[in-house]
Design a binder for these strands. Sequence first.
DNA 1: TCACCTTACACCTTTGAAGCGT
DNA 2: AACGCTTCAAAGGTGTAAGGTG
Length: 431
Amino acid sequence: MAHPADSYQQGNMRMKLEYSELWKSFHDIGTEMVITKSGRRMFPYCNVSVSGLLPYAKYFIMVDMVPVDNSRYKWNNDQWEVAGKAEPQPPCRTYIHPDSPGLGSHWMKQPISFLKLKLTNNPLDQRGHIILHSMHRYKPRFHVVQADDLYSVRWSVFQTFTFSETTFTAVTVYQNTKITKLKIDHNPFAKGFREEGTHGKRNRAQKSQLCSENSAKKLKSSEKEPELPYDPHREDSETLTLSKEVPMAQDEHMSPWGGEQEPGQNLHSEGAMDYTNSEQLVPGQANYQLQRSHAFGKISSPSCTDSQTDCQGFDSRSTDMATVPEQELSSPQSSMSLCSSQRKPLDFSMTTSIGGCSKSRSGLPLYSQYNMEQPLGHWSGTLAGQYSSPTYPQPHPHPHHLMTERSIHPSGYHHNNMAEWSQYSLFSYSC
DNA sequence: TCACCTTACACCTTTGAAGCGT
DNA sequence: AACGCTTCAAAGGTGTAAGGTG
């Protein structure tokens, strides 16, 4: 009988997307996320729960956005259609959860909220927001890295998870009115636009009256309706009360995302990847296990967070992991393969971190970053932006907070050729 | 002309400090 | 003094609409 700790050593890391029913309801229509110059939060926002971490080990939890294809889109005749080739990708930025590095027990205690993650279309952004192109499609990618500090992150194993229902089109103005309505209905900040109350903006007189009404409402706060899933401080994972209010997810083939792109067109097409990478520094076996929260279209119970049945919801229709052969999913180290096997880096914003290089058993360098004394100014701020901003606490005292830029290469953590890698660190690189 | 973007705005929630009572 | 609760104002998150840009 295996020791309980063995399960951790075997890499039973799992990730579950919270509010997946809400995500699906958006996904069925074609999720759009507004991006602004000053940065805009996502709604629905990314909220995941993880399990299988070592309780007393430290982890970084990170998110980046990867393009789902190489196309630019336009909204025409009530549907999205390809409008040409994608623009060169802006500097890839990785949002590190401000609790990082945190103990495994901390991360597993409650769902991990990325509420404060912001998206921007400003390539000169200095606040560390994730830079995207409008009218392009992206998918959030979650990384779990066991590391004590930022310095050691680069040598660590990346467990990467994606959820197909989180795919979205970045827009500056909503294109699909159904999305607008769905956002208004579910986002408390947009309550003022709900039809149940008033229609659109009120004049000042109405506002004055409203203030009085609000005061009265506060006195009756105990009668307040339960709000939709928003509270970032909620410690339980009872997000599923929501499922009563969200339309049942439709089959994937009904989704506006479906059928528009072939796997082969996807720059990140995992299906074309090489999963035989054996050169990674993996301290132990690391299974890539995509955690599905529910079977498709199935309303799960609030208590299913850690249930076994919850772990069986893998559905080839509803997850991008369908592009990965199942045997690959269960093979050791395949989690890194997902990243490392991407032969064409999409983009890499330069780094000022000190050089680092890990070596495989064969002696080949794996993942390295090179010095740049002077970062390109408009690119600075990715990681340091998080740390230097008063919004984000400094998670760990480390000299490398002095870094002005440190972006995780979106396409991988494995390069055999150091010279090849180093050139990425000089300029933004697009394939 | 058109598609897309920026900006200002009204309306809303969240947050945290101040005040008060126990 | 410490704690908990309430109140209130400021900060910040929303979608909308008008105007700007290429």
